[in-house]
């Protein structure tokens, strides 16, 4: 029988209240969002907080909206809501393609984007999406709000720049008219963590790539991205040869470990192949195919 160790429980009534509770309890407190990473870790005693601060009553952290030139996703928006969002589907196919292969429909009803980002699992699919789209996060503490690029958000596996008494309140993505995007994942079975995943956006204008982003997860790409591959493509026609060269540069940015999901050479092969497939699809989509 797996049960968490004894723990206290408090429901935050507002973001400010949650920050007050965090300041009061220090690093013995943990925020509870969907709970589908934290509760399993507590059962295994990998996490042993003294108090959980439940964010589930905070409507201010829900909702997907357009604000100026950005899409804003509240931290407590669930995977299921991202999957079903017409706003996200209109601007970026990558969200739907990634969410369809994250966990399973029941887990997606609970898991949240804020929780996924802050869990910072090195195999998190949404982290690859966030880095591919060059999104940012808004973090709130008692001193106010600060915005941080997702490509500067991670300190390492399971570590982020969110402080002990801070909360990630929203994730923001720039809208790019004409962008195509795509996501591909190889998993051992439905709902598993990826062996490897790649997600990209591409803007093709006047026959050349004018903007792009490449995200990778589970295969040791620093900050879940491949900047050299992106830089290579800018100004080039999206030919098979150029996309393949960029995909190889993306694989070169990866340092996967061999584990039960596969050996290093297989994962590097997937890095290249999945990047190439998503680049092809996104470039075609950007050109109206």
């Amino acid at each position: 029988m797996q049960t968490p160790a004894p723990v206290d429980y408090a429901r935050a009534t507002s973001v400010a209240d949650a920050i007050d509770l965090l300041e009061k309890h220090g690093d013995e407190a943990r925020l509870l969002a969907g709970g589908h990473s934290l509760l399993p870790m507590m059962k295994l005693r990998l996490a042993r907080p003294e108090i959980l601060i439940d964010l589930n009553d905070l409507d201010e952290l829900r909702g997907i909206r357009i604000e100026g030139e950005e899409i804003v996703i509240g931290a407590m928006v669930t995977h299921a809501e991202i999957l079903d969002s017409p706003v996200l589907a209109e601007h970026y196919a990558i969200f739907r393609e990634a969410e369809k292969v994250i966990a399973d429909p029941i887990v997606r009803n609970k898991g949240t984007i804020g929780g996924s980002m802050c869990q910072a699992d090195p195999s998190e699919d949404l982290s690859a999406v966030g880095s591919a789209l060059k999104g940012s996060v808004v973090i709130q503490g008692s001193g106010g709000k600060r915005t941080l690029a997702l490509r500067e958000f991670h300190e390492g596996p399971y570590e982020t720049k969110v402080g002990d008494a801070e909360i990630l309140i929203e994730v923001r993505f720039p809208i790019r008219p004409g962008a195509g995007s795509a996501y591909e994942k190889v998993e051992r079975r439905v709902g598993d963590w990826p062996v490897a995943s790649a997600g990209v956006f591409v803007v093709v204008s006047g026959g050349v790539v004018t903007d792009c982003g490449i995200g990778l997860t589970a295969i040791g790409a620093e900050h879940f991205c491949a900047p050299d591959a992106e830089a290579y493509l800018i100004g080039k026609a999206p030919t098979e040869e150029n996309l393949a060269a960029a995909a190889q540069l993306a694989a070169d940015a990866c340092t996967p470990y061999a584990d039960q999901r596969g050996p290093v050479d297989y994962k590097l092969h997937l890095a290249r192949e999945l990047t190439l497939r998503t680049l092809r699809k996104a470039a075609a989509s950007s050109q109206g195919a």
């Binding site: 429980y9 509870l32 709970g35 589908h36 509760l39 399993p40 959980l52 439940d54 589930n56 429909p105 029941i106 887990v107 009803n109 609970k110």
Partner: peptide, 13 residues
């Protein structure tokens, strides 16, 4: 009204 896996949710929630 929404299905959840009840082994991964606290009764307190």
């Amino acid at each position: 009204g929404s299905p959840v896996k009840s082994c991964t949710m606290l009764a307190a929630q």
